Simulated scan of single mutants.
Amino acid sequence: MTSDFVTRARSLAARHLSSSPRRWAHVQGVAATAEIVAPVLHAEHSDEIVAACWLHDVGYAPDVAKTGFHPVDGATFAEGEGMPSLVVSLIAFHTGSVFEAQQRELLAELNAFAAPPRDVLDIVTYADMTTSPSGEPVSADERVAEILSRYDEDDPVFAAVSTSAPELLAAVARVDERLTVAQPR
């Protein structure tokens, strides 16, 4: 059963991101992955994980962006919309955001939010890092390469992803391992 806040997260994401078809396709793919993986690996927080995946990129929306750092802007927005604190923290800390916050000198803004448990955050990172910009499944290695290809070497995102890639890939590997254990072949 999907909670009211998951339905609301989906609606908010559609309202703020559907005018950007590529980003909207990515978000839909990330949420679809989370809807499959989260109940298997973390049933007790499945709804929070799925809601966070729907909203993980809402900070890119022009009407939501304030600092230009989408994890903080998205978390601030989600908090203002009354999302549960775990949803807010998952948005803030998704996909190696600590590394980009360091590059942008926005660690204080990021650390205004509580860090989520690693095993829960790993699922959000997994869903994001195994979904292409067009919403299709992709390997995490391909996703890292794709992200790096979009940015100049002096861009904070390039520097952050270059630095965080080992941790991002490790998070994906941890989830893959947990899935293997949870669903033996």
Rank of each mutant, 00 (worst) to 15 (best):
T2E: 14
T2A: 15
R10P: 05
S11E: 14
R15C: 12
P21S: 08
R22I: 15
Q28T: 10
G29T: 00
A32D: 01
V37P: 03
H42Q: 14
H45E: 14
H45Y: 14
S46P: 06
E48C: 13
E48H: 14
I49K: 08
V50H: 09
V50C: 09
W54P: 04
D57G: 10
V58L: 13
V58A: 12
G59L: 07
K66R: 15
K66A: 15
D73A: 03
A75L: 04
G82F: 07
M83N: 08
L86W: 03
A92L: 04
H94L: 02
A101K: 04
Q103S: 08
E105W: 06
E105Y: 09
L107T: 04
A112D: 13
A114C: 11
P117H: 14
I123V: 08
A127Y: 03
T130W: 05
E136I: 10
S139W: 07
E142K: 12
R143H: 10
S149D: 05
R150G: 10
D152K: 13
D154M: 09
S162Q: 10
T163E: 07
S164K: 10
P166G: 03
L168G: 04
A170Y: 00
A173S: 09
V175E: 00
D176I: 09
E177C: 12
A182P: 01
P184M: 11
